[in-house]
Design a protein around this nucleic acid. Sequence first.
DNA 1: CTGTTAGCGCCTTCAA
DNA 2: TTGAAGGCGCTAACAG
Lengths: 353, 353
Amino acid sequence: MTHEPPGPDNRRSRRPSTIRDVATLAGVSKSTASRAIMGQGGVSPENMEKVRRAVEQLDYVPNQIARSLNASSSAVLGLFLRHTRSPFYAHLASAFEEHAAVEGYEVMSLASGDQPDDANYRSLMLMADMRTAGIVVAAPNVDPRTIRQVASRIPLVLVSQMGQPSNPGVPYVAPDPREGGTLIDHVAGLGHRSIALLSFSPEQSPTQWARISWMRDELEHRGLLAGLKRIEPDQDLTDVVGELHRAGATAILCPHDSVAFDALAAAARQGLSVPGDLSIAGYDGVPPFDHEVFGLTTYRIPVEAMAEAAVKLIDDLVHDNHVDAGGILLRGELISGRTVGPPPAGPDTTDAS
Amino acid sequence: MTHEPPGPDNRRSRRPSTIRDVATLAGVSKSTASRAIMGQGGVSPENMEKVRRAVEQLDYVPNQIARSLNASSSAVLGLFLRHTRSPFYAHLASAFEEHAAVEGYEVMSLASGDQPDDANYRSLMLMADMRTAGIVVAAPNVDPRTIRQVASRIPLVLVSQMGQPSNPGVPYVAPDPREGGTLIDHVAGLGHRSIALLSFSPEQSPTQWARISWMRDELEHRGLLAGLKRIEPDQDLTDVVGELHRAGATAILCPHDSVAFDALAAAARQGLSVPGDLSIAGYDGVPPFDHEVFGLTTYRIPVEAMAEAAVKLIDDLVHDNHVDAGGILLRGELISGRTVGPPPAGPDTTDAS
DNA sequence: CTGTTAGCGCCTTCAA
DNA sequence: TTGAAGGCGCTAACAG
């Protein structure tokens, strides 16, 4: 084995050069260097040039953080997400980044995961500390008090998966709650008279809980409710789906698309054909679940439009433009796939026209 | 309509209280306040209590950024991702956050999207500026020079979707390149003698390009290559798939799972049954694509293990433990689904045992 | 144990 | 046009 060359060092070396280094090398004062770098004029051409060269030679890049420490605001937006994993949030984040970039913002994201609320508070404060221009919160698990506390210090916009969130005074973007019946209309319209719901616990997801609750009430009101089954994340749905079917349900509405696919797998294991024996619908309608090859029937939350609206809202807030204390409601759309069809012709189909 | 109450204000109010406010209110000096807050001892019980009360009364939260400005390091890790959208990166980010949390790190993420490399450089510097303890880069589009430049200032680990990346001296985590043949072995093992590849351009994804190139060479070497078709993102694959099939290909390997589903849809439109007429395989094997209900045959990149290894690596680097200049290679696994089967019995199946 | 001083890197008054 | 000084919020080193 030959002698190893000093080689590209694993360990860090020269500390990043500061504006001081630039000033010294250019033979001017820090202030002049600063002004030259900021390009605000008021610097002689010679000094301008000297500084430019020093910057180049030293690979100098201004420390954005130190800069924003006294600038009181930067061009960075904070995005606080429930998870990174779920396609809904991933898609939202991506769309938000794109639209924010158009307005000249950089986006830094933090995820809540399942941390307790005081950790959420610290995460949000961390964003605020770095003088983000504003924060967008897309994490239904954050306590409303925390939201208000942070919102009192920095422009903050809420993005919700459902109707108006319970944070008075904080602007929000959300799907129009009046759209909640779209899916039910579709399923009922095909003739289903016994529709079941799957749901996580309220703790696991307040948003989905609210959504499902609304649907339960609506179905009950219309006399179509076949029952609501509480499920756990990653639970095997084979038995649940089997029971619901045996109990007479002809359609199952799921809290989100991923669950719908679990239910489809469960139905397959139970030897049930979809939508022949049983119809199954999801909720969210976000890539990749909405891929034509899957043919899932679902309700598409208008993620793209929500992201765009959120950027506009936070941007207005940042620029102190007038912003409605309320929020912006957007309409999604029904994705009509191949997992929902007419109910099987049963013995009591008499009243189905 | 009644008179509106002053209401929870849309606009921000009192600027966040600083350690100065705390000190003043508690009637001590900034240093004492600081020490009390840091809880490092050396403060009298009375002052301790006074400060505690002041903190509570003012809702004081230390500014982490200002703190790290002279601390030279914080407990925040930076994660720089190619996209937020793709399930691969979303999954990686999520897993990374979880493992980082175990080690007591917070994770802030920035996405590269399609920005030019100088913007990538600025993004990475922004992370470094905020004194992140270290940075993990999972974005194959970042220029190696940029990587080295940043790595010379701050602990940096590379996470790649394929074998060893071309960044000498920078530790990395990657799937074992020797595993590259797994999928080919599987498909060829079933009797396919004419295997086609789909690929994006090298610019769109160096990683996938490298992977596909490797496969092309391998297939050519084995005399099984039916051709390589260059595709664009979001391209309709109907014609491509049709042509490949007519040209005699019995199996198509895709650059990643999402493309595989596009190909499946295209095959369906062409009236081809899968895997009866044509076998199709993906690559990545990450949720939600690996869901049993889809039955996709693919190669699963060991994302979880990679995330865990990346955390360990960056943590070691941060603590100046010895870290191999090379990297860590991990093995994924073949997911054998229902989209790859034996080739159709053709006129020239004579040599297939 | 406590307060004063200095400095992280930067920008922005204020005089000169 | 320029430099010196001060401050963003915080912590660490240094006297008392």
